[in-house]
């Protein structure tokens, strides 16, 4: 089943008198439950594509159909609501709210959903347990290591049970052992929860955890590699 379908997807930014085309007529199809890595040099359009799929930016032209809905036609207001239901976002620099504990950071997206405090507690506890950081639930981000912060960010991304998780260089700021642990965790989530996963990375080692790697250059698809992910 197709989860993401891009047709002739184009994004143009104007800068002064000129224009920049980070995405230029991209066609792409991602199936439900697939783990896709996006690679390419800086300025190739990886993060732009990720942001369009995550609904935090809108294409200039072309269509972007996610789970049967053309998100390019949604208003800012509708996009925010759509994001809260469909998307979990993992940032390179974790982007946790510094004055909130790990528990409170993970609870943040749930505040948008109609559920009781008890239901929220159960969901947060389950997410922290899944990422293996339940014992640090009352720690503030400054009291956690980079790997632990990223685990909290992953718990925040999965707590609403989104259909798609987008990750922008999730291991870019981590040492090798931590990066390995985080990638194993993302792979586990992809396999156990069946969540579609789109990840931007510069590291070929990291991209091997994905089922497919998409190479972009100058806003266009260069190659699409199928691979067997490490066990």
């Amino acid at each position: 089943m197709t989860m993401i379908q891009c047709q002739n997807l184009t994004k143009i930014y104007t800068k002064g008198m000129g224009e920049i085309r980070p995405l230029d007529g991209l066609d792409l199809e991602v199936h439900s439950g697939q783990f896709l890595a996006l690679m390419g040099p800086s300025g190739s359009g990886k993060t732009t594509l990720l942001n369009l799929i995550a609904g935090i930016d809108l294409p200039t032209s072309g269509s972007l159909i996610i789970d049967g809905q053309d998100v390019s036609t949604l208003s800012r207001h509708q996009l925010a609501e759509w994001r809260s239901q469909y998307i979990g976002y993992i940032f390179q620099l974790y982007n946790l709210v510094p004055v909130l504990t790990a528990y409170e950071n993970v609870e943040l997206p749930l505040l948008l959903h109609p559920m009781t405090r008890r239901q929220r507690q159960e969901r947060v506890a389950a997410s922290l347990e899944l990422v293996g950081i339940a014992d640090r639930h009352d720690h503030y981000p400054r009291q956690l290591s980079g790997g632990q912060e990223q685990r909290v960010a992953i718990a925040r991304a999965i707590v609403t049970d989104p259909k798609i998780i987008v990750a922008d260089e999730p291991t870019g700021d981590l040492d090798k052992p931590s990066a390995h642990n985080v990638m194993e965790l993302l792979q586990k989530i992809n396999r156990e929860l069946g969540t579609t996963m789109i990840m931007v990375t510069h590291d070929p080692g990291t991209s091997r955890y994905a089922q497919k790697t998409l190479h972009l250059d100058k806003g266009q698809l260069v190659t699409l590699d199928d691979q067997e992910a490490p066990a």
Partner: peptide, 15 residues
């Protein structure tokens, strides 16, 4: 600014 951008990414509306 970053924190508000994070909240928006999580689905918090501007209002």
């Amino acid at each position: 600014i970053k924190e508000h951008a994070i909240l928006q990414t999580l689905g918090y509306k501007g209002g």
